[in-house]
Design a protein around this nucleic acid. Structure first.
Lengths: 129, 129
DNA sequence: CGATATAGGATGCTATTGCAACTAATTTTG
DNA sequence: CAAAATTAGTTGCAATAGCATCCTATATCG
């Protein structure tokens, strides 16, 4: 799926590792990398690298929080706002392609289960009694 | 999940990219890399690299098919046969951990959907009419 | 107030994966 | 039968992801 998404987004120079962060920033007000990492359940170094690429391509701006210099607030640039609908369309095409043969219920429950599995893996491993 | 599996299998020097091939070879009679790739829906170069590692660790033997020198028949070594049950146990632990919160039905249908999605992605993209 | 702890973020490294391109062996075609 | 096409496998390369570690800024504690 990463390969397919990368191909879809190649025209915009956005890789499979970046689109999810772009969309997450687009969907909310400005956030820190740490907050993004927790929301998306990925390591913070992964976020740092993805954001660096998005910034290099001019889609995202990083501004140090004046109140606390450890924070960098993330927001879309004008180019970022313009590319978001294109990415949304590409993702819709991907979804149409991958969910072929799955009913709405099956697809929804599939995504639900996927989230549960990811959360199970992200949670610190429980001590066994 | 790859990180977690790698940690589980580290004692045997088997990485997250190799165990699936080891188990596939264990489950059948000797096969070619091409056949393995198709069965597991992965690229043949991925298979080649995984098998090379398994061979280096002494778990798998590659023997050229005397009937056709393009083929290499894969089979487990004695060490391979001995490590399979260990890997099976590690995977069972992973499964227990990841499927927490999912009923048997939900988990089965999850795996089923995952296979469908993977197959949708692996199939050559359909021409649109 | 100063030392220590904590938090956000960045960098180095390793592992995995697939595509493109290549080699070598066999099969098909003219 | 020789040339062309196909097949199995390999190598080079780039992208992604997370862990370990480090740096800097802020917060906490003695």
């Amino acid at each position: 799926m990463q390969v397919a998404i990368a191909a879809e987004l190649a025209p915009y120079r956005i890789g499979s590792g970046q689109y999810i962060f772009l969309m997450a920033i687009a969907s909310g007000r400005s956030v820190t990398q740490k907050a993004l990492s927790e929301r998306l359940l990925v390591d913070k170094t992964t976020t740092a690298k993805a954001i660096a690429k998005l910034e290099m391509e001019g889609y995202v701006r990083r501004e140090p929080d004046p109140a606390d210099n450890r924070y960098q607030l993330l927001e879309l640039s004008e180019a970022g706002r313009q590319v978001v609908p294109k990415v949304r369309e590409a993702l819709a095409r991907m979804k149409a392609r991958t969910r072929k043969g799955l009913s709405d219920e099956a697809y929804d429950s599939f995504l639900e289960s996927l989230k549960i599995v990811l959360r199970n893996l992200t949670e610190p491993e429980e001590m066994q009694e």
